[in-house]
Design a protein around this nucleic acid. Structure first.
Lengths: 346, 346
DNA sequence: ATGAAAGCGCTAACAG
DNA sequence: CTGTTAGCGCTTTCAT
């Protein structure tokens, strides 16, 4: 019924409870021989530490918090799954924590959250991870955290992180569009307080530059990471005297909005206009045509971050790690129409 | 920092810790006057019981499990949010538990899960909640649970539940289509092991009957609750010698697939064919045109179920409760085309 | 109706 | 390197 306890293992291995505790928690100071004996007993008894007891007596609850400020259900769930798989594996608990990344007392809110539940540490996802003032405060409160950030390479700023190269992926998508022959490529920006938005814009601009295509102000439209802004932005783009032949939405939800806008105008995607997204969410697969996008494994990224965090908590040194989203070409992108009519008919 | 403890409250209120414990856990045997005093102290000290300590010493961990077998991220998250809001409110923890509802050892898997984490009880969502053999076993193991089921009215079968009238909502959608003038309405079924699929089919058939429209075998297509089956099913429907003028997908994902199929065939929705879904998920809002659907508040439904469960655990008597999804008419449904050409052109 | 004592399973702070 | 002694904050006995 109730699984074996520390004492059971201790008895079985002929050592004290404390020694078992040490082994289980990976402390160095145990003779290899003793460690083996304990490990064997753990195995035989299928011992799993009781999180509640551990949390109650220890300095922290062996539970981490996953902090997010994101409206996208699919994304949240993917992150949660990644975090869970690491937590399950390492015998940690997980608490989900939505928050307002723009709150001025962000660091204090999080500190209270950590203290109330005696959390061991936090995984900070974007855009929370980008509020640097809050990070400083959190560090001052001595709260362990690992960030997930959008950056081309290791920031080496003293805070552990997993960095995702959004710029590179956006570059790849734009190059794909350029290679198809598009010259006028619209860009629908994501929320300004996401660093990823700037990185993606940078990738877009650099690709344009590398292909000798001058960037045009009127083709870059502000918005947030939501369907409606994609819809509205694309509408504006398509209403231009000289509309773009391709539109790159800063994420799939924006791109889905752009797709809907094109269709609502009577345009055919990809024949009249190509559309690309970013993220590889269900939206990108469940539209018609399916969207060309950049695959970003939020689950794997967060799992890595979670493992790093738990390693940090255990006092280990960790190295930052990078991820690259990869281009996924699907039906929503194709060469532009010859020269003739590519205007709407509605 | 760390919040007030039971002893703090006890001292403040001038009673013993045990008395505070009684009040906090809503036991009867406390004089109203004493109870008031304790409650005031709780308020003043902003006392919140420590879940870990509670779980460690008590017979159960003051944590419930939310059990699901569903591929739909949006749906899962909505349920989780509902459960969380009830749990936070009532000082319970929450564990998410995906499972295979078709496993023969389902009840035993869940029992082990409950025992390992010393869970207080389970909220069973569909289709797990419909494996009646497993329910019997769970009850035999004395594991408290509350089910969410698809039924027109209270089943009164001795197990507490929240029931959702899928039949009624499907009826409403079909009537909507019939009133628009559709006579040939395709129906894309959801997975057979979901009772809701049968209920929705029933609603569809009853609406047809009430409008004197004979049901046609070739218009009802089997499938699962996934985009691809919606796509394939709709393709078959549209390839019929006499294709339907409207298609009702058993959920939004199926409907999104049907929408994609129609569009991939060059048809215009809703002018060439109307499409309706079920669930009011983001898919239904983020397509073009947006889908007519039935709004089903999974968050609220699960929150209710969670509150019922916690009440049960506390020894209270609970009454079953029903929910009705409501029709949401959007752009994907319109009257059928006159008599002329309503075939595809691709 | 209330309280005192014991202990849930683990880790912290010390010994040795 | 290993063991001992105390608790963590709560609920369970069992008294009163």
């Amino acid at each position: 019924m109730a699984s074996a306890t520390l004492d059971d293992v201790a008895t079985r291995a002929g050592v004290s409870a404390k020694t078992v505790s040490r082994v289980v928690n990976g402390e160095r100071s145990v003779r290899p021989e003793t460690r083996q004996r304990v490990l064997r007993a753990v195995e035989q008894l299928d011992y799993r530490p009781n999180l509640l007891a551990r949390g109650l007596s220890g300095a922290h609850a062996y539970t981490i918090g996953l902090v997010y400020d994101n409206p996208n259900a699919y994304y949240i769930l993917a992150m949660q799954q990644g975090a869970l798989s690491a937590c399950d594996d390492l015998n940690f608990g997980l608490q989900m924590r939505p928050c307002n990344s723009k709150a001025s007392a962000l660091a204090e809110d999080l500190r209270d959250f950590v203290h109330r539940s005696r959390l061991s540490g936090l995984v900070l996802t974007t855009p929370v991870s980008e509020r640097s003032a809050a990070l400083q405060r959190l560090a001052a409160y001595k709260i362990p955290f690992v960030r997930i950030v959008s950056a081309a390479r290791d920031p080496h700023d003293g805070f552990p992180c997993v960095y995702v190269d959004d710029r590179d992926a956006a570059y790849a998508i734009t190059i794909h569009l350029l290679q198809l022959g598009h010259q006028r490529i619209g860009f629908l920006r994501g929320g300004k307080h996401h660093h990823a938005s700037a990185e993606r814009l940078r990738g877009y601009k650099e690709a344009l530059r590398d292909y000798g295509v001058p960037p045009r102000k009127e083709l870059m439209i502000d918005g947030d990471y939501v369907f409606d802004d994609g819809f509205r932005g694309a509408r504006r783009l398509l209403d231009l005297a000289e509309p773009p032949t391709a539109i790159f939405g800063c994420n799939d939800e924006i791109a889905a909005g752009a797709l809907a806008a094109a269709q609502s105008t009577g345009l055919h995607v990809p024949y009249d206009v190509s559309i690309a997204g970013f993220e590889d969410s269900p939206f990108s697969r469940h539209s018609w045509p399916p969207l060309t996008t950049a695959r970003q494994r939020a689950d794997i990224i967060v799992e890595r971050a979670t493992r790093m965090l738990i390693a940090c908590i255990g006092g280990e040194d960790v190295e930052n790690e990078g991820f690259n989203p990869e281009l996924v070409v699907r039906g929503s992108t194709a060469p532009p129409r010859p020269k003739s009519r590519q205007r709407k008919r509605a």
